[in-house]
C-alpha cells in the first residue's frame, strides 16, 4: 500500500506541474482528463471492486452539476455549492443503492441506466428552479484572468481526483475493500461468511456517487452554463466503464491509466477523423476490450 501511495503522490505531483509546460489547450485537456479520472475511479468502487455494472455515473454527475448550479444561483458561495453537490450525490446514492442493489447483473445495469433519464426529465420539468430545457447560467468567478480561471479549475479537479484516489486506495486495503472483493466473487458465500452485503454494496455505491457529484458541480462552474442533455449524458456512464475496462477493473492505477488513454484516443481520433470520430473510437474500444480483457494493467503483470 505504501508503494502505491508513493507512486500516486509522484504521479499527482507530475500532473500538478503540467500548467508550467503547456498552454491553455493542454490545461483544458488536463482538467478534462482529471474529471474523467474521477469518473473512472468512482466507477471502480462499485463496478470494479463490488462487481456491480453501474450505469449511474451520468445521474450522479448531472445531479451534482445541477445541485451546485442551483445552489450558486440562490447565492451560495462556490466552494459551499460544490460540497453541497457532493452531499446530494451521497444521499441520493444511498437511497438509490438500497433500492437498486437488490438486483444483480444485467437487471442492475438496466435499472441504473434509466436513473439519469428520470433525473433529466425531472430537471426539464422543474423550470422555475433549473431553467428546464433552457439551461442554467452560472456566475463567472471573479478571478484575475481567463488563464487564472483555467488554472483554478484544473487544480480543483486535481484535488478532487487525488481525494478520490486516496479514498479508493484506503478502501482497497480496508475491511470494506476485502468485503467487496468477496461480494464480487460470490455474494451468497460472502453473506454466509458474515459480510453484511447490503451495507457494503450501498457504501460502495455511495463512494461511487459522491466524487462524481462534486465533479459535476466543478464542471458546471468551469463551463458556466449547463443544460440537461449535456450533464445527464449517458456517455458519462459509458465512458466511466470503458475507461476502467481499458485500464483494468478493480486495480489501483487502472482507472487513471484508462482515463488518460481514453482521453488521448478521444482527442486524437476527434482531431484526425472529424467526420467518423465516434465510429473510429468505438472500433478502438472494441479492439481493446477484445484483446486486453483485463486492461492495460495486465500488460505489466504479463511481462513481470
Amino acid at each position: 500500500m505504501k508503494r502505491d501511495a508513493l507512486r500516486a503522490v509522484a504521479m499527482f505531483v507530475l500532473i500538478a506541474l503540467l500548467p508550467l509546460a503547456g498552454d491553455s489547450y493542454w490545461l483544458r485537456l488536463g482538467t478534462t482528463m482529471l474529471m474523467y479520472g474521477v469518473l473512472a475511479i468512482s466507477w471502480n468502487f462499485i463496478g470494479g471492486m463490488a462487481g456491480y455494472p453501474s450505469f449511474a455515473s451520468a445521474a450522479f454527475f448531472g445531479l451534482g452539476a445541477y445541485a451546485g448550479a442551483v445552489a450558486q444561483k440562490l447565492g451560495a458561495p462556490m466552494g459551499f455549492a460544490w460540497a453541497l453537490a457532493g452531499a446530494a450525490a451521497l444521499v441520493f446514492a444511498a437511497a438509490l443503492g438500497v433500492a437498486l442493489l437488490r438486483l444483480r447483473g444485467h437487471y442492475f445495469a438496466i435499472a441504473s441506466l434509466v436513473v439519469a433519464e428520470v433525473l433529466r426529465e425531472l430537471v426539464n420539468a422543474a423550470t422555475d428552479l433549473t431553467g428546464g430545457g433552457m439551461g442554467l447560467n452560472l456566475p463567472i468567478p471573479r478571478l484575475a484572468s481567463i488563464e487564472g480561471q483555467a488554472m483554478f479549475f484544473f487544480y480543483a479537479m486535481l484535488a478532487l481526483a487525488a481525494l478520490a484516489f486516496a479514498a479508493m486506495l484506503a478502501a482497497m486495503h480496508s475491511r470494506l475493500g476485502f468485503g467487496l472483493r468477496c461480494i464480487q466473487q460470490n455474494e451468497s458465500a460472502a453473506d454466509m461468511l458474515g459480510v453484511n452485503t447490503t451495507l457494503y454494496k450501498v457504501a460502495a455505491f455511495m463512494l461511487s456517487g459522491v466524487f462524481v457529484g462534486v465533479a459535476g458541480a466543478i464542471y458546471a462552474s468551469w463551463v458556466h452554463y449547463i443544460e440537461p442533455p449535456d450533464v445527464f449524458d449517458v456517455l458519462y456512464s459509458v465512458k466511466a466503464i470503458v475507461m476502467v475496462l481499458i485500464g483494468g477493473a478493480g486495480s489501483v492505477f487502472g482507472p487513471l491509466f484508462g482515463a488518460a488513454l481514453f482521453l488521448s484516443l478521444e482527442e486524437l481520433v476527434w482531431r484526425n477523423y472529424l467526420q467518423v470520430h465516434t465510429g473510429v473510437l468505438g472500433l478502438l474500444i472494441v479492439l481493446l476490450v477484445l484483446f486486453l480483457p483485463k486492461g492495460l494493467i495486465s500488460l505489466r503483470r504479463r511481462t513481470a
Binding site: 475491511r175 476485502f178 468485503g179 472483493r181 468477496c182 466473487q185 460470490n186 451468497s188 458465500a189 460472502a190 454466509m192 461468511l193 458474515g194 459480510v195
Partner: peptide, 20 residues
C-alpha cells in the same frame, strides 16, 4: 463455494475477519 480468484489464505482470512 470458494472465492476462486483469491488465495486459500485470503479465503480463510475473510471468514475470520467477517464471521469471526
Amino acid at each position: 463455494q470458494p472465492f476462486s480468484a483469491m488465495t486459500v489464505l485470503e479465503n480463510v482470512t475473510a471468514a475470520a475477519l467477517f464471521g469471526g
